[in-house]
Amino acid sequence: MIRTFIKLTLFIMTIVLAVTQVIMLNTYSTSGEKLTTLQQELNTLDAENIRLSQHIASSSAIANISAKAQGYGLVKTALPLSLSSPLPVAIGHELRL
């Protein structure tokens, strides 16, 4: 009785696992195409990122900013303006020590 039950169980499990394998393989078989599509999208986004990085780098180039600053009327400071007066020599020396 028990042996029959075990044999029947094993038989049913074999059938179920075989069917499951077929179903899963069938599902995965089309995933390769999706993976390729996703990979292509990823490559496109990577390329776009690189293009944007390039654009940001070019826009922040110092020569570019300098030219734009001049275009906006900004000029080089003739003399530096100090917002605070220098410390007295004795205190300045003390702080440096």
Binding site: M24, Y28, S29, S31, G32, E33, L35, T36
Partner: peptide, 11 residues
């Protein structure tokens, strides 16, 4: 491993 279309076979 790839299929006939060149898509990867995940399994």
């Amino acid at each position: 491993e790839v299929d006939a279309s060149g898509n990867p076979i995940l399994s």
